[in-house]
Design a protein around this nucleic acid. Structure first.
Lengths: 251, 251
DNA sequence: CGGTTATTTGACCGACTTCAACTGCAGTGG
DNA sequence: CCACTGCAGTTGAAGTCGGTCAAATAACCG
C-alpha cells in the first residue's frame, strides 16, 4: 500500500468530487485500476479506427485526444489529466474516431470496457459517475470550440491555462499556483488551432504582461486575476469539480 | 395512425439505425415522445444555467446548440436535426453550460429526464441507444473542432455541408441531393467561426465551382464528389448512421 | 563536444475581418 | 398599387491577425 497507490487515490478522489461513494463502491472503483503501462512522450495509446474496447485512466503525465488531416495539420481536441476517466462508457460506439497520445512521459491504466460494464451494472451510482466523467469532457470540449472559433489567440491561450489550472488544482497537482507543464509549444498550438510561431509570440505577450511564468518544466500563474480577465474565464462549466476560482480547490 | 406520427417514426427509425429494438422497446420509445411544442426561428429553448431536467427531440426544423461571449461573439457548437435525441442521459450533470435555440421555425418534443431514466432502467438496450445518441453528437462536435481549428474556410463550409447531407439523408429528409436549408448566413458563420461577410464570399466560391446551389430555402448538392474532395470529407465518424456516402442512405 | 530538437526573432504574405455602402426582397400600411 | 421599412445578402476597400519562410539562438542528449 505505499506510495504506489497514490495515483489510484487521485482517481477515486476526483470521482468523489462529483459523486458520493459508499465504501463498497469505492472499493469496486479501486479494483478497476490495473497496473500502469508506460508511454513515452509522443507515443500513440490508441488510434483512429481501433475498437473502442478499452478505457484509460492517466496516472502520471498528460494524454491528448487528437485528430489529423492527412497533410500534417493536426488538432488536439482535449487534454486528459491524471484522475480523469477517459472513454468511460464509450464502448457503445464501435470504433474510435480520434486518437489518444501521450503528450509527455506518461503512466496510464488501461481498463477493458467489459470490466467497466460489469461494475456499472452492479453499481448504478458508479455508472452515473462514469457518465459524469464523459459529459464533463464533453462540456470542456464545447468550451474549446468557443476558444478556437471565437476567441483571439491571447484570449484562447489564457483561457486554456485558466481551465488547466482549475483542473490540475482539482486533482491536487497545483501547488502555490505552480504545476509541471511539459508541453511542446507545437502541442499547445495544436490545441488552440494556431501555428507554433504565432503561439510563441502570444506566450511572450502573457509573460511580458506579468500573467505567467513558463519554462519547459513548469507553469506558474503570477497574476491569476489578470489572466482570468484576459481570458474572460468563467469556470461554471467545471462546477462539478467543486473548484470555485482558479487556484482554489474546495475542501 | 395518420401523418401526425411521421415525426415520431423519424425518431424511432433513426434510433433503429444504430440499435436494433424489440417491439416492446420500440413502443416504450414512442410513448416517450410528447406532444410537440412550437418555437419560432430564433427562440431560446433552453439557456445556460438552466437545470438539465429535460431532453429534446426535434420533430421539425433545426435546433442549434450554442455558447456566447458576452460581447456578442457567438459560436454554434452543434446542429440538431429531426430525429436526434438531444441531451439524452445528460441529466447526470446539474446545469446547462450551453443553450439550445431554434435555428428555424421548429417543433420539438420536450421530455422530462425522469421519464427517460425510467425507460432506461426498464430497458437496458434503450439506455445504450440513448448513450449512442449522446456519443454520436460528441463525435460530431470533435470533428467540428477540427473544422474550425485546422480547416480553411472553404474546406470547413464544404465539410459542414457534407456532414449535414449525410445526416439529413439518414433521417430521410434529403431527396435527390436537395433539402430544405433555411439558415441565415450569420448562423452558418457562427457554426464555422467565420464572419458573415467572409462566409458569403466562400459560399459564392462553392457556387461558382458548381458544387452547390443554395438559396434562402433550399440546398442542392450539384457535384457531390467535388464537394467531398474540397472538404476532404471522410464520414467514418458518422458510421453508426449507416450511410456510406453523401447522398446514399443505406436500405 | 557535435547533432538534434525546441524556442525565438525578423520580414513578408495572405486569409479573414471590419467598415461602409448598395441591392434585393418581403411585409406593411397608406 | 405603391411608397416605406427592415432585414438578409452582396460588393468593395482597407486593415489586422495570424501564417509562412528563413535563419539565429538556446536547450537537450548522447
Amino acid at each position: 500500500m505505499g506510495s504506489a497507490h497514490i495515483p489510484v487515490d487521485r482517481f477515486t478522489a476526483k470521482i468523489r468530487r462529483h459523486t458520493p461513494l459508499s465504501a463498497e463502491e469505492q472499493e469496486a472503483l479501486v479494483k478497476l485500476v490495473s497496473r500502469p503501462v508506460f508511454y513515452p512522450s509522443g507515443a500513440t495509446i490508441a488510434d483512429v479506427g481501433d475498437l473502442l474496447d478499452i478505457a484509460t485512466i492517466p496516472l502520471e503525465g498528460l494524454i491528448g485526444r487528437s485528430k489529423s488531416l492527412g497533410d500534417g495539420r493536426r488538432q488536439i481536441l482535449a487534454v486528459l489529466l491524471p484522475g480523469d476517466f477517459v472513454d468511460a462508457q464509450a464502448s457503445v460506439m464501435r470504433h474510435r474516431t480520434d486518437s489518444l497520445e501521450a503528450l509527455d512521459d506518461s503512466k496510464v491504466a488501461i481498463i477493458p470496457q467489459s470490466r467497466i460494464e460489469a461494475v456499472a451494472a452492479a453499481f448504478p451510482r458508479l455508472r452515473e459517475a462514469f457518465l459524469r466523467e464523459a459529459f464533463l469532457e464533453t462540456a470542456i470540449t464545447r468550451e474549446w470550440v468557443l476558444n478556437i472559433g471565437r476567441r483571439t489567440a491571447v484570449e484562447g491561450l489564457a483561457h486554456l491555462l485558466c481551465e488547466l489550472t482549475v483542473r490540475m488544482d482539482a486533482v491536487g497537482l497545483c501547488r502555490d499556483g505552480r504545476y509541471p507543464f511539459r508541453w511542446r509549444q507545437q502541442q499547445l498550438a495544436d490545441a488552440l488551432g494556431l501555428s507554433a510561431i504565432h503561439l510563441n509570440r502570444v506566450i511572450q505577450e502573457l509573460r511580458r504582461s506579468g500573467c505567467i511564468r513558463l519554462d519547459r518544466e513548469t507553469l506558474e500563474i503570477l497574476d491569476r486575476d489578470r489572466l482570468c480577465a484576459v481570458a474572460g474565464f468563467d469556470g461554471t462549466y467545471l462546477e462539478i469539480l467543486g473548484v470555485d476560482r482558479v487556484g482554489e480547490a474546495a475542501e
